[in-house]
């Protein structure tokens, strides 16, 4: 019952309470702790606390992946702005295969593709993603599957 997932969920909820509250007296903070404990208890009772809620095995490599993703997003933002201003778009639609094993890994990969401007995941069936790209270069980036390797590396944990 008390494992690393429930402790991580409790810390997230407590951080959110402290962020929203702004009043740090003993009474109000203790009320916050009690509400967070109640929420964690209800989550455990409802069987919601699994790898999809708190993918805790992502955490060791999450910071490095986030920095890499922000760099990618910045680069493709500049490219998308150039494409929009120079009227040189040639949209295309294609499918790629994902090599992730778990659902959380697939969700992370699809969301990373969509978060990068210039590529959008439109449909998912098993491990085949259908991707819409703004130009041929963006399509080549996804087909080169560097992001796929990064997400698979993130999914493995330590």
């Amino acid at each position: 019952m008390i494992n690393s997932k429930s402790i991580a969920l409790f810390l997230f909820l407590l951080g959110f309470w402290l962020l929203m509250s702004g009043h740090y007296t003993v009474l109000i903070t203790s009320l916050g702790v009690i509400s967070c404990l109640l929420c964690v208890y209800l989550t455990i009772k409802g069987n919601f606390l699994d790898n999809e809620t708190i993918p805790i095995y992502f955490f060791p490599r999450l910071i490095q992946y986030t920095i890499w993703l922000i760099k990618e997003i910045f680069i493709s933002n500049i490219t998308t702005a150039k494409v929009i201003l120079s009227k040189s778009e040639e949209p295309e639609l294609f499918s790629v295969k994902a090599t992730q094993k778990t659902n959380e890994g697939k969700v992370t990969y699809a969301n990373s593709i969509t978060l990068t401007p210039g590529t959008v995941t439109t449909q998912i069936k098993d491990n085949v993603f259908e991707v819409h790209a703004l130009t041929k270069e963006f399509g080549d980036d996804v087909r080169g599957s560097e992001m796929d390797r990064m997400v698979t590396w993130l999914e493995k944990g330590k």
């Binding site: 040639e90 949209p91 295309e92 639609l93 294609f94 449909q123 085949v128 259908e130 819409h132 399509g139």
Partner: peptide
């Protein structure tokens, strides 16, 4: 969608 469609799509 406007534009090319490459290969098999879903």
């Amino acid at each position: 969608p406007i534009g090319k469609t490459k290969g098999k799509t879903l």
